[in-house]
Structures are given as C-alpha cells and as structure tokens.
Computed example of a mutant assay.
Amino acid sequence: MRWILVLLAAILGTVAASVAGVDFGGEFFKIALVKPGRPFEIVTNVHSKRKTETIVSFNGEERVYGADAMNIEVRRPQVAYSQIRRFLGTSMDHPMVSSLTENEYFPYTLTQNLTRGSVALKHNNEHVFLAEELAAMVFGHARQITNDFAEGPVKDWVITVPMYFAEPQRQAIIDAAEIAGVRVLSLIDENTAAALHHGVDYVGLENGAPERIMLFNMGSTSLQVSIVEYTTRVVPDGFKKNKTIVEFEVLSKAWDETLGGAQFDLRLAEKFANEFNTKLKNGQDVRKIPRAMAKLRAAARKTKIVLSANEEIPVVVPSLHADMDYKGHAS
C-alpha cells in the first residue's frame, strides 16, 4: 500500500472534531490528540506522564489503573490484569496465552468463552471477564484522561495494532473500544504509523531517488521490523506554483511474537528466583508464589532500566518470602 502524506496533511488541516491516536501497547499505552486548527499534542495522565501502564487492578469494587494498578499488582497479583492485549481475539491454546501462566508465572485463572470462542479470566471466583471487557476498562480510562486533557469529549480514535494481528484480534480491539464508548475510525499497524510520522518531515534525497529505511520496533511483547521506501515528486499547485508530495510504501515486514522487553524482565526474574530458591527448604520454588513472583518481576523491570545506563546494580527485595530478603547483583 502506498501512502501519500499530502493527503494526511489535508485531512488534519480540515478536521472538524478532535481525534485521538492511541498507541495501545502490551505494557504501556500513549495518546496523541489532534484538535481542529492546532498541531497534535501528547496527552498526559493523572501523574503528568506521557505513557500509562496497560493494566487494570481491583481494590474491592474499585477499578484502579496505570501506576496505581501496578502497585496493587505487587501486593495482590491475583486481582491485577496486565498483558491484556495478548488475550484479545485468541484462544486458550494460543502459545502467547498459555505462556503467561505456564512460563511467565502470572496467577491468572483462564477459561474459554463458549459463545465467542475467545479467552476469559475468572476474577475472585465470582466474576468472569472477557478479554474485550478488560481492554474496554483500560480504554475507558484512556478516554477519561484524553477528555480531561482536551477539556471536552473526544469520541473518534485511531488505534495502532501489531502487524501480526489477525482479523479476530483486530475485531476484538474494535469491540473493546465500542464497549468503552469510542468510535474507531481506523486501525493502523504500529510500524506503518511510525513510517507515517517519519514521512511528515521527510525531505528526500537531493537527486530525488527513492530512499529505503528499516523500522526496528521492539516492544514489550514482540519485535516488528519493516522496510519502507520513500519517494518525492513535484506536482503543480495552482498558477506558477509547485508542491512536493512525499509517498512511502511498506516493501516488506517481519516479526517475532515471542521476543520483547518482557522476556528480558522474565530472564532477570528467573535469575533472582533461582538464587533465592537456594535459601528455601523442601525444594520450594518461589516462582509458584504469586506475590513473591510479582515482586521479582517488579525488581526485574527496575533492574533492566537501571542497567541501561549502568554496568552493575545491587538488587534487594525486602521480605520476598518467609521473612527472608533477596539480595543479589545484576550486570
């Protein structure tokens, strides 16, 4: 598919209502807001952050989102639901679904929705939430912070999806958005959205030759790579005027659904768990203890971030299990 950027500029320049562009990631979501006659803005959440954790937790009957929900996940992981996107439009035997409970030690109780054939999650043995319902809760929170930022309702959204999403997964995104009370104008592949953004300010080569670039997108749950070709051409624009049109085409794309930042977190958490298990008796495994494993995942995420700028970091998790601390190092 060939995208013409002058068309995008024309649409944005004449938009009659506010539109939100939602980058719905596996671990975080981000929102861009386009209002009539104004350049786009990045929406900030209640903590004045540009990205918000893709998670919903329950504190009794109250729903909690974002960083506050992450705090609950560490204390009560059985009532905190993250990695929601991986459940959408899939079945229980999908490798990325079964991996969450079998290999990544999330304490979820999954069940099959017989009507839709999709995944549902049991909550407190009292409620069953469809994956679309959980995603709709997150979308509802996203809608609220967008409306607050825009100082008015924003009903129209464009949502990014991974390039490997099949039709059932894309439809599940649309269904979740509709439950949340927003209208999806379009779904766009994540890498295509990045290519579009790059093309807005693209100048082109001096000789006018096509230029190819590679987009490397490693997210929380997957790796996606695209090869994109940009071209420019000059066309008449009124009397004695010309304008330059930028076009791009996605020539090829590839992905790995199993390789993402969460896998780095898991490797660190596994290292910490193995070291702590040497302190336990009777062959106990801290991975089987939901609260302890949630603490190790949180420590792994923090360690990964710190190691991005440091060669070594001491890791301490107080009262990990059985009144014992975990103390170690990562490099």
Rank of each mutant, 00 (worst) to 15 (best):
Y164E: 10
T258P: 00
V6R: 05
L185K: 04
T115F: 13
A269T: 08
M96N: 11
K155D: 14
L130Y: 08
T221S: 14
V235K: 04
R50W: 03
R50V: 01
N125E: 12
V154I: 12
V161M: 08
E178P: 02
G26K: 00
R233T: 12
V138D: 02
A17W: 11
S331Q: 10
A193V: 06
Y108R: 05
P290K: 11
A17V: 09
T115N: 12
S18V: 02
K240H: 05
R183W: 04
M70W: 00
N125H: 15
M1E: 14
E178L: 08
T146K: 11
V74P: 00
N191K: 07
L205D: 11
R287M: 12
A80T: 08
I213T: 07
G25R: 02
M163P: 00
L110A: 09
L33M: 05
W255F: 15
T231Q: 10
L33F: 09
N277H: 06
R63H: 12
A273Y: 02
F106K: 15
H321N: 07
A294Y: 15
R63W: 09
R287H: 10
G13C: 11
N274H: 07
E270P: 00
F40P: 06
E73V: 04
Y164C: 09
P318K: 14
L100N: 01
Q171W: 01
Y105V: 06
F216S: 03
D93K: 13
E270W: 02
A292Q: 03
R297M: 15
E311L: 10
A16I: 04
E132F: 13
S186D: 06
L251F: 01
G238Y: 03
Y164P: 06
T54W: 04
Y202F: 15
G140F: 11
V184M: 09
E229S: 09
L134W: 09
L296Q: 07
N147L: 02
F264A: 13
P107Q: 06
E249Y: 04
K241L: 13
G140H: 05
E190D: 05
F264W: 03
K240N: 12
G60M: 02
V203M: 05
A269H: 02
I305C: 00
I188S: 03
T90W: 02
S98T: 14
L320R: 04
T111F: 08
A166P: 01
W255E: 09
V182I: 15
F106D: 13
N125S: 12
T303E: 00
F40W: 13
V161Y: 08
S220H: 06
K304F: 03
I213M: 01
V250H: 03
P39S: 01
R183T: 15
S226P: 08
F272Y: 14
N191A: 12
E132A: 12
Y164N: 09
A209L: 13
L215K: 03
G219Y: 07
K30H: 10
Y202A: 00
G261I: 09
S226L: 07
I305K: 03
R297W: 10
A166N: 14
T160S: 14
K253V: 01
F276L: 06
G25A: 01
L307M: 06
M214R: 04
E104G: 00
E190F: 05
L33Y: 07
K30P: 02
G199H: 05
E151V: 07
T303H: 00
Y202N: 05
M1G: 15
